[in-house]
């Protein structure tokens, strides 16, 4: 039986107040989800920083690789027409 050196890693996300989305705040080690939530409450919301917590096993996160960032994000680079500032509008036009 292989012995783990430490509990699994969890990433912690907090909604600081109603109307805002959850934001990544840090990570912690915990044996299971329930303990991860409790520990997240104790370390990341000691001063009422949150009204809702998500904990996600770090191993479950799929990330884009920084090595492929040019090719991966390239398609957006030459499409300036997706931004409103791309368009010429006469100066006298309002509310547009």
């Amino acid at each position: 039986m292989s012995k783990r050196r430490d509990w699994p890693l969890w990433e912690v996300f907090i909604r600081s107040r109603r109307g805002l989305s959850h934001q990544h705040v840090g990570s912690l080690h915990a044996p299971d989800a329930a303990m991860a939530l409790r520990n997240a409450r104790d370390v990341y919301t000691r001063r009422s920083e949150g009204v809702s917590i998500w904990v996600v096993p770090a191993a479950a996160i799929v990330a884009s690789s920084p090595d492929e960032k040019d090719a991966f994000f390239d398609p957006a680079a030459d499409k300036a027409y997706r931004h409103p500032t791309f368009y010429d509008v006469p100066a006298e036009v309002q509310h547009l």
Binding site: R5, D6, G26
Partner: peptide, 19 residues
């Protein structure tokens, strides 16, 4: 808590807290 935040930051560099 400060210790926890910092061990967490160190782990993003590829070391384990246990180490």
């Amino acid at each position: 808590g400060h210790g926890l935040y910092l061990y967490g930051a160190a782990e993003t560099l590829g070391v384990d807290r246990a180490e």
